[in-house]
């Protein structure tokens, strides 16, 4: 018999003896995980949508005059110095006219009376694609506006700002539910373990008297906390998956879901969440055993 097998046996016995409080703790841990991971899933999908939108994202910087080659170089240098960009394209008045004309197609006749330099020259800046492209674009725009010779910077400002606020709001909820998760897992588990410890005071005293090591006495409680975390987070993630499938079925065919297909959390994230929950519960258990079992 090893420490682990002895500890596992004691853990099983503890959990069976206090199954009512174990169930309460398990339910609380599962619910906390479900709440947190639900908002995290929303945030995760929001970021994915942002990334998809960001793929087509570019800033158009209108200039008052066609820049000379040295000035073009100066613009390029300043833009690249501020942030990483995927591409910088200079569009002269003539190129803008030709492009506009192409876009009009058969209606290009309306341009016949207009001079070919009536459109302003511009720089098309495509920022590097990343999850926080949307949050960076506003800062980028503000910076570009300060460059000399810039008339106006154009991008989908309004929707980006709205989208960004929604993402920020979800982020706050994720953080708050994360705090809730930490509190419930550690405190609830610590409380349950303390109850178990108190109910087994006589046995623990006896174990000390017959020569059990501190590890032998503490290990079952640490395992108990870990099990509660693992099982609770597993149930929570399972419930989240069911909820996700239900939402997909319920809203299948809606415009939003067709425009932006959602995805479930990647396995690595699920594993990480479960690991964190398990560690938090073990931590709660550890703090409880430290307080209650003073050897």
């Amino acid at each position: 018999m090893s420490l682990l097998s002895a500890a596992l046996r004691h853990t099983g016995r503890n959990m069976a003896n206090t199954w009512k409080s174990q169930l309460t703790t398990l339910f609380t841990v599962s619910l906390s995980i479900l709440i947190f991971s639900f908002f995290y899933l929303a945030y995760f999908n929001g970021l994915l949508i942002g990334q998809e939108l960001g793929d087509d994202l570019r800033l158009i910087v209108y200039l008052d005059e066609d820049p000379s080659p040295p000035l073009e170089e100066e613009y390029r240098r300043k833009i690249e110095k501020f942030d990483q960009v995927e591409s910088i394209t200079f569009v002269s008045r003539q190129q803008a006219f030709a492009s506009f004309s192409r876009q009009l197609g058969d209606d290009r006749d309306i341009l016949l009376d207009l001079p070919p330099d009536f459109l302003p020259p511009s720089i098309q800046v495509s920022p590097i694609k990343s999850l926080d492209s949307l949050s960076r674009i506003k800062r980028f725009s503000d910076y570009l506006q300060t460059l000399p010779g810039v008339l106006r910077v154009q991008y989908g400002k309004e929707w980006i700002e709205r989208f960004y606020s929604v993402i920020q709001l979800i982020k706050i909820v994720v953080i708050l539910s994360g705090c809730l998760l930490i509190m419930t897992t550690t405190f609830m588990v610590a409380h349950t373990i303390r109850l178990t410890l108190l109910s087994r005071q006589k046995e623990l005293e006896l174990l000390r008297l017959v020569g059990a090591t501190n590890n032998y006495i503490r290990m079952p409680f640490l395992l108990e906390g870990g099990f509660q975390g693992l099982l609770g987070s597993g149930l929570g993630m399972g419930a989240l998956y069911l909820l996700y499938r239900w939402l997909l079925l319920r809203f299948s065919g809606s415009t939003l879901f067709e425009l932006f297909p959602c995805s479930f959390l990647p396995p690595a994230t699920i594993a990480l969440l479960m690991m964190v929950a398990t560690l938090l519960c073990a931590l709660g258990s550890f703090s409880s055993t430290r307080k209650t079992l003073r050897f």
């Binding site: 018999m1 090893s2 420490l3 002895a6 174990l207 017959v210 020569g211 090591t213 032998y216």
Partner: peptide, 11 residues
């Protein structure tokens, strides 16, 4: 068994 379990005696 308690006094033997704590020293990991075989079952």
């Amino acid at each position: 068994a308690i006094s033997m379990e704590i020293v990991y005696r075989k079952n």
